[in-house]
């Protein structure tokens, strides 16, 4: 059943199923994303979480912050955990062995939703093979990547999501280096190429866009990948109160474009139609420099000898925005 959320006031009637007094940093965007995802539906939710900030801080002995069924598993296999939950649920439903309370909800049309949360480390690097496998097998679940572009839980090491020029503990900026040397991996396209029926990129500051995409994902039959921008006060080094502003700057400068890719497949699994929709177009595209200036992890780029990296950033962002627009126009 799709929950009706017309505006923010209606959305605020939701009863949170994620509890306070967890140990996430003040101003952490992970929490905002988790809240928005869980509140997008009133149906029962089963959550699997990979190791990472979210797991470590919401299940500290002897307490839990989850009011939904919750499973913690290794760093690398959140996708497999969610996939097996989904497979087990399908079998139990077929055999009529669901618990009475669940069965009642299923009869009312409130199917349980299965969601996996993982950080960018558990998605882009460590969890990639299991994620790829689960998507290839086509289980019915949603995978949400909380992308803060760094291994924040273990002290800020670079991941393959870290963008060029960022200073991290394993790619520190200094007199000989401008920080991270590699460009960011384009995970959304990679997951779309698995043939997943629905793949989207979201930002917590655009809550309505996020909720709409999550609801669409819940309705789809098959694996769904959501890439969520998660501003990190500790590793991006901005002030806690600026989380939403930094997220907005990312969206408005097109560093973090909001779009979705819908694949339609026939019964043999052959993709016969792919569509890319840009769901948010900034009224005025701001220069990337403003996004970078808001985060002290890029502070060194403003030195004269590193200025060329900012130009490179702008070029890369413009090229990507151009590419997305061309794809949307061509309907591929």
């Amino acid at each position: 059943m799709v929950k009706k959320i017309k505006n923010l006031k209606e959305f605020s009637l939701s009863n949170d199923r994620f509890e306070g007094a967890n140990l996430m940093c003040p101003g952490c965007a992970h929490n905002i994303i988790v809240r928005e995802v869980l509140n997008a539906t009133d149906d029962p939710i089963i959550v699997a979480t990979a190791t990472g900030c979210l797991e470590v801080c919401t299940a500290v002995y002897p307490k839990t912050s989850w009011d939904v069924s919750w499973l913690h598993i290794g760093f690398e296999n959140a996708a497999v955990a969610a996939a097996t939950i989904s497979a087990a649920y399908e079998v139990m439903k077929k055999k009529g062995k669901l618990p009475p309370a669940t069965q009642k909800m299923v009869d009312e049309g409130r199917e349980p939703k299965i969601v996996a949360f993982a950080g960018d480390g558990g998605t882009y690097d460590i969890g990639f093979q299991s994620l790829s496998g689960a998507f290839e097998r086509g289980h019915n679940f949603m995978y949400v990547c909380l992308d803060n572009e760094v291994y924040a839980n273990t002290g800020g090491q670079r991941s393959s999501s870290t963008p060029i020029g960022a200073s991290t503990t394993t790619s520190p900026a200094g007199s000989v280096s401008y920080g991270e040397k590699m460009m960011k991996k384009s995970m959304v396209e990679i997951m779309a190429d698995h043939g997943a029926p629905y793949v989207a990129q979201v930002s917590p500051s655009k809550w309505k866009d996020l909720v709409k995409k999550v609801q669409k994902g819940f309705e789809v039959n098959g694996p769904v990948y959501i890439n969520a921008q998660s501003a990190c006060t500790t590793e991006w080094k901005h002030a806690p109160e600026d989380t939403i502003e930094v997220s907005d700057l990312g969206v408005d400068s097109c560093v973090w474009p909001l779009y979705e890719i819908i694949n339609e497949r026939d019964e043999h699994g052959i993709i016969y139609s792919t569509k890319l929709n840009i769901t948010y177009r900034p009224k005025k595209k701001i220069p990337v420099e403003e996004y970078l200036a808001a985060q002290p992890r890029f502070r060194h780029l403003f030195k004269p000898e590193n200025r060329h990296i900012i130009d490179l950033w702008q070029k890369a962002v413009d090229a990507r925005w151009e590419y997305l627009q061309k794809r949307e126009e061509a309907g591929v």
């Binding site: 923010l8 605020s12 949170d16 509890e19 306070g20 007094a21 003040p26 965007a29 905002i32």
Partner: peptide, 26 residues
């Protein structure tokens, strides 16, 4: 909607107050 710590109490579409036990002061 943007409170990371579920510390803004909102009931019947009205804002009521802040839960000081859970607010981290971000």
């Amino acid at each position: 909607v943007f409170c990371p710590d579920m510390s803004i109490l909102s009931r019947d579409k009205k804002m009521i107050g802040v839960v000081y036990e859970h607010c981290k002061g971000c």
